[in-house]
Design a binder for these strands. Structure first.
Lengths: 362, 362
DNA sequence: CTGAAAGCGCTTACAG
DNA sequence: CTGAAAGCGCTTACAG
């Protein structure tokens, strides 16, 4: 592979001049420039990014550590992150933690070793020493979706509180009184918050949330399945179950089906996180939708602000309830306004209609 | 951030000794080793991977350029690639081409600039000059899923021919005679092959495949939707439609639903690529399943063989038909053997039951 | 406008 | 077993 020396030799100039041409430095003669460019062309020369990074101490690369690539919510997030990063001249390296703190640490370490310019993370847990060190030692960092309390890192997330209240109102309106939740890990902010919001909303209706109606999940399908099985084994099973993420909802749906029962006839089901497939499941699933694409883009902007010395902004965007058919909604409840099928919007559009945003300084 | 010099100073040895300890070089005294290790610990030192790569001319990184991250098939593939790579001591950087040749080139270029040790690609098109150059210039490379003819690059893929024949037999057995296909781009091998296999299978039954029954898609949902609309507009619409990938099937399902029609009552639908959600759609979708995880792992092994100087092997694995309910199968046709819900197997297991494999030298 | 030189943080023959 | 030194491919003050 041709190096800058080869180019310099071919063009009859010094490597310094070649470097200047390559970096658009103003003080290069037109003549030198054309000769260098010709040499670059002739040799098919491409600068070695590794060498450049070593010298400049920047990689123009962002690290993104997500909790689970197989979760469409995070896939969507990752995609929007990469798009925005590319628009700003950065590459992104994705690390998949698979909801495992050890794997998360592995990726953080690898990313740090590669000297990425900044780190975007959606932590799987309350923060390993490594993660905390990274945050404190000044590595530019931004939390997306989930965050860790007590560290001075901007957070870009969506607030599902209002939407959860809307959901409970919706369930109540449909006549459901015995409500249950399949929660995410208590070590994650989203795991805790969704249960809290649910509990508060129930309280507003004077409804109880007994421990037997809180299933402990880990955001993965299998745990949703187990939690739903336990609910169904109860002497008096819940009438409606709210799964704190889409994969647990899928597992729960499985559990219901395996018993030969039906959603929503035998039990209602709703999920946090809306994904294209929820339109097509049997029945279509009522869910709380986050502005995922906008979240990813805002996170990148915050991180790049931080990297480039501008004050980064924490951002909180609202989530919203999308009522479909899995809670026993009457046929008319299917949102006719969404006739343009969401799968296509989500899967092919690079920008969602941007929702009203609440921004708050970090 | 502490450098090797700081460690050397702290330990009272030369940087060469520090380097030897870090790289497990045998000729280091026990004493020096302990002092170095202590210094590393004390300073929280982590070797700079950028500097190491520049010096050793290897990054221990693989590039993976996939056609579309939002496609669960590729997400699954990417995950298994990362797992196997990690097991072999490599990192992987994923580039999402979004089925766009220009974006694909962007990622290949970026990856090459970073001097990744090898490249795994599932080409979106017939091969840009850049891609061809890379292949010919000796960059270790392996094609996964899709490939480009005429270049000497090992291919790891699955052969769907038999499964497509099985599908046609299945459709024929259910009484369908007017069959149609939503094809992938002719510029991709999988796009062409699936149509070819379908055409041959139809011929075996003496069934025609008129041009009006070949919808041209691009592997994305929107194109499946449009193709299905055109089929439904036909004076005599097909009785069964085979979508050449899962996203186009989803789009097609949408188109059917929007017209107020039902699958399979009004029209049967089958898809290439099986994904966890197909179990839960309404109706559950009959699909051709690839051994995706095994494909990803085999591709990594082939690439690493190539990188480390061993002869790489092309691998072809069989795909298989999974009959469900979307083609008008009788209720008993739902695979009871699969009672353990596929969503959980796919989403949480890291290894599928390994299918019989056909291996052929590249 | 241009080039010689230093240096980024490592690894690795070479000499001892 | 150990260290001094060269060098990987760049960029960038510094001097001219």
């Amino acid at each position: 592979m041709a190096s800058i020396k080869d180019v310099a030799a071919e063009a009859g100039v010094s490597v310094a001049t070649v470097s200047r041409v390559l970096n658009d430095h103003p003080s290069v003669s037109a003549d030198a420039r054309t000769r260098v460019l010709a040499a670059v062309e002739a040799l098919g020369y491409r600068p070695n990014a590794v060498a450049r990074s070593l010298r400049t101490d920047q990689t123009r690369t962002l690290g993104l550590v997500i909790s689970d690539v197989l979760n469409p919510y995070f896939t969507h997030l990752a995609r929007s992150v990469e798009e925005e990063a590319r628009a700003l001249g950065y590459s992104v390296i994705i690390g998949n933690a698979d909801e495992r703190p050890d794997l998360q640490d592995h990726h953080v370490r690898t990313l740090l070793d590669r000297r990425i310019d900044g780190l975007l993370v959606s932590p799987t847990d309350g923060g390993s020493p490594l993660m905390l060190d990274a945050a404190r030692s000044g590595t530019p960092m931004v939390f997306v979706d989930r965050w860790i309390a007590g560290v001075d890192v901007p957070v870009v997330r969506s607030d599902g509180r209002t939407a959860v209240h809307d959901l409970v109102a919706h369930l109540h309106g449909l006549g459901h009184r015995r409500l249950a939740i399949i929660a995410g890990p208590a070590a994650t902010t989203t795991g805790r918050e969704r249960v809290e919001a649910f509990r508060q909303a129930l309280a507003a209706y004077g409804l109880p949330l007994p421990d037997s109606h809180i299933g402990q999940g880990d955001f993965q399908a299998e745990s949703g399945r187990r939690a739903m099985e336990r609910f169904l084994d109860l002497a008096e099973p819940p009438e409606a179950v709210f799964a704190a993420d889409n994969l647990m909802a899928l597992g729960a749906l499985d559990a219901v089906r395996v018993r030969g029962l039906r959603v929503p006839d035998d039990i209602a089901l709703a999920a946090f996180d809306d994904i294209p497939w929820f339109v097509h499941t049997d029945p279509p699933i009522t869910a709380i939708a986050q502005p995922t694409g906008e979240l990813g883009r805002a996170a990148v902007r915050a991180l790049v602000d931080r990297i480039e010395g501008r004050p980064p902004e924490s951002v909180t965007l609202p989530a919203r309830l999308v009522a479909r058919r899995s809670c026993g909604e009457p046929a008319s409840a299917e949102p006719r306004a969404l006739r343009k099928p969401p799968v296509l919007q989500e899967a092919t559009a690079s920008t969602e209609p941007s929702p009203a945003t609440n921004r708050s300084q970090s």
